[in-house]
Amino acid sequence: MISIDQLAYQSALRQNSAAGKMAYAWMTLVVCVAGRSLEVSAAAFVVNGFLVIRKGKISPLRYGKMLLVPLAFLILGTVAIIVNISEIPLDAFAIRLRGWYLTGSRAGVRKGLELCAVAMSAVSCLYFLALSTPVTDMLGVLRKIHLPSLLIELMLLIYRFIFVLLDTAERIMTAQKCRLGNRNLSTGIRSFGMMGSALFIRSVKRAGALYDSMEARCYDGEIRVLSRERPVRKKEILMIGAWEILLVFVTLWSIMK
């Protein structure tokens, strides 16, 4: 989470309009998921990789490692769809095992691959967004599209407090380690529990202090803040539009063929 946040701030695409990036990511994701086309998913996956690595200047190794996380889950799920245990061998492949076959049909393999491709392309869309657009910029766009302010305020405070609490937890854990708090499993479990309760108490205290500080700045129940303005350029709008239209056409073509 922290490394993704840091990478988003380091991305060379950071200065591009957050609205444009969000529109691109979400529209591509919707087309990929709704169309379920292998070709469209592959294209989206490749383009997102290109944008993240070449344009965003994120290390390919890092990006690759990040993709491996969902891929592992996906492979396990897809295997269940593709591979069957049957007495009759199917048309794609069949491995004989003592009178039974570990087998799969062509349709099943295609369905599995499609599912895998769609899921990976959807993940790549989200990674593109997460690795090029910091949460601060996203919140600005959500405000502009008039998402209920309560949701945005909650997102804002949760985002801020993740880091504050992580920092506090880290300090508590270091203090525990210094006093052999993680010597063995039982002390580790006890220390973890103690850290949890200390963190809860500190969170409550910090929330009180934060409320005071917000009140000191005339807080009236609604958090109003300004984000940096980065309008979408015409060139970006045209490119995103052309890309999405192309994806829709390819999807329709693959459905009709």
Partner: peptide, 26 residues
Amino acid sequence: GIVFQDPDDQLFSASVYEDMSFGVLN
């Protein structure tokens, strides 16, 4: 205007720009 002892008690927003705009908008 009061500046609190621990800045983490005061800075609640995601970026410095957002945090600074909070008071003036209020």
